[in-house]
């Protein structure tokens, strides 16, 4: 395979005719064997550098932008940070987010009574995270999802909400468009946020067992 220049910017890949040696099959076949044997030997003596990942004993750690399963963050007092503004469900191209808003009787603040994501519809594009004005929805690096009945595919507040001050490190796609100091926790900005004194019973109580994605250590 060699090149000849036709004119500036254009090269022609020449087809070299087969030599007598090539016609004998053997040189090319042996040459090919040498290439594969070289790979084999190289791999044999460098087992640690094998590209193969022995899932599930060894797990691939994706970058901190990985778009995996969603979570909803909480404020320090344990209430969900989501204010049910419907931005995420508006921005979602798959229309997989269902929100039902409720109103806090005391603070007159909106909060989600029902927040459901149909994981099977979701295309993991990250638009909901981009659209959230409250730092409330993040995507994690959790890709191990397999559902055995379709009814379980709709995850609600109970599965989505994580406890307050949840570490940002192991999470994936997060609100970008300009860097912001996160103080190491999700939803840690807290600027101008009204604090509610206690979680209401409509909010799913923070359940430390729910999020087990963790650091994939």
């Amino acid at each position: 395979m060699h090149l000849t220049r036709v004119r500036p910017g254009v090269v022609k890949v020449e087809r070299t005719p087969l030599t007598v040696l090539d016609r004998l099959y053997l040189p090319a076949v042996i040459g090919g064997m040498l290439v594969t044997i070289r790979h084999l030997l190289h791999n044999l003596f460098n087992l640690k550098q094998l590209p193969t990942i022995s899932y599930p004993e060894v797990k691939r750690v994706y970058s901190e932008r990985f778009r995996g399963r969603h979570i909803l963050t909480s404020r320090e007092d344990g209430t969900t940070r989501c204010v049910a503004c419907y931005m995420c469900s508006t921005a979602c191209p798959a229309e997989c987010i269902t929100i039902q808003a409720g109103e806090d009787e005391r603070t007159r603040e909106k909060f989600p009574v029902r927040y459901e994501i149909d994981l099977l519809r979701c295309v993991f594009c990250g638009y909901c995270v981009d659209a959230c004005p409250e730092d409330a929805i993040y995507m994690t690096r959790d890709y191990e999802m397999a559902i055995d009945t379709r009814a379980r595919s709709v995850v609600g507040l109970r599965d989505l909400v994580v406890p307050p001050n949840f570490p940002v490190g192991p999470m994936g796609w997060r609100p970008y468009y300009g860097a912001i100091d996160k103080h190491g926790t999700a939803g840690g900005t807290g600027v101008g946020q009204q604090l509610r004194s206690a979680p209401f019973e409509d909010d799913a109580p923070p359940n430390p067992d729910v999020f087990r994605g963790g650091d994939a250590q």
């Binding site: 899932y55 099977l120 890709y143 999802m145 397999a146």
Partner: peptide
């Protein structure tokens, strides 16, 4: 269907899982 795998597309590890 016996198993549903979310993701668009699921990662190879997700499918193996």
């Amino acid at each position: 269907v016996d198993m549903w795998v979310p993701g668009c597309p699921p990662t190879p590890d997700g499918l193996m899982y």
